[in-house]
Computed example of a mutant assay.
Amino acid sequence: MVRKNRYQQYSEPLPERGPVESLIYWRDPKKSGPVFGGVLLVLLALTYFSLISVVAYLSLLGLTGTISFRIYKNIVQAVQKTGDGHPFKDLLEFDVSLPQEKVKEVSEVAVAHINAAVVELRRLFLVEDLVDSIKFGVLLWTLTYLGAWFNGMTLIIIAWVALFSLPKVYETNKTQIDANLEIVRTKLAEITSKVKAAIPIGKKAEEKKDQ
């Protein structure tokens, strides 16, 4: 009965947390599509051209577009004898400065994550828990194969596509995915417990913690 209620809770839609989540979950395809396609296009361009070339060409393309639009609006205003003014007046008056409180908040969150990562890496590299360090070693060993198969830019492109696809797939099939993940977590917990019980070092570490 408890399991059923939990799955019913999983079937509820995910709460909205902000514009980023709205983009990732494709709440408005007219916004998510251009963001996903635009960034993907830039990432694909970076696989064939240098960063400087991509930035220069994109900037030149944008500048050409704004200059052309400005000249076009000036011609229209001269022919129609209207006083609409600068076509980008609203954008020029828009405040693009970063709020100090938001920057401070983001910096504090980033520092907290960095500190937590440093502590965790120290724990893994200095083998505080043998089983965790072995699992970390297996992960690093897997990454060596990923590095041999894909370069960094390819992995970034895959991550970007996954960011805009996996969350939506998870939201749509939340109940089934959570049920399968629960089975996998239970199996991993059982295997980890058996490995720790079979390793003398793990037993000593647990005895010290109990004392």
Results as ranks from 00 to 15, higher is better:
Val118Ile: 14
Phe136Tyr: 15
Thr142Asp: 12
Leu139Glu: 05
Ile157Leu: 11
Glu128Thr: 02
Glu101Pro: 01
Glu128Ala: 04
Phe150Ile: 00
Leu92Tyr: 12
Glu101Asn: 13
Ala198Glu: 10
Arg70Ser: 08
Gln176Asn: 09
Val127Asp: 09
Leu143Ser: 03
Leu188Val: 06
Gln80Met: 02
Leu121Arg: 02
Thr172Glu: 15
Gly137Phe: 03
Leu163His: 05
Ile191Trp: 09
Ala198Met: 10
Leu130Lys: 11
Glu101Val: 08
Ile191Leu: 13
Asp129Phe: 00
Leu130Asp: 07
Ala189Phe: 05
Ala112Cys: 07
Lys174Trp: 05
Leu126Arg: 11
Arg70Tyr: 08
Leu130Gln: 11
Val79Lys: 11
Asn115Arg: 15
Thr144His: 10
Ile183Arg: 15
Lys73Cys: 05
Thr82Cys: 06
Arg122Asp: 01
Asn74His: 07
Tyr170Ser: 05
Asp178Met: 14
Ser193Trp: 04
Asp95Gln: 05
Thr144Lys: 14
Asp132Ser: 09
Thr154Tyr: 00
Ser165Asn: 11
Leu124Cys: 03
Asn173Ile: 01
Ile71Arg: 10
Ser193Asp: 11
Asp90Trp: 04
Pro87His: 02
Leu181Gly: 04
Val111Ile: 06
Ala148Val: 00
Gln77Pro: 02
Thr186Trp: 14
Lys174Glu: 07
Glu120Gln: 11
Gly202Lys: 01
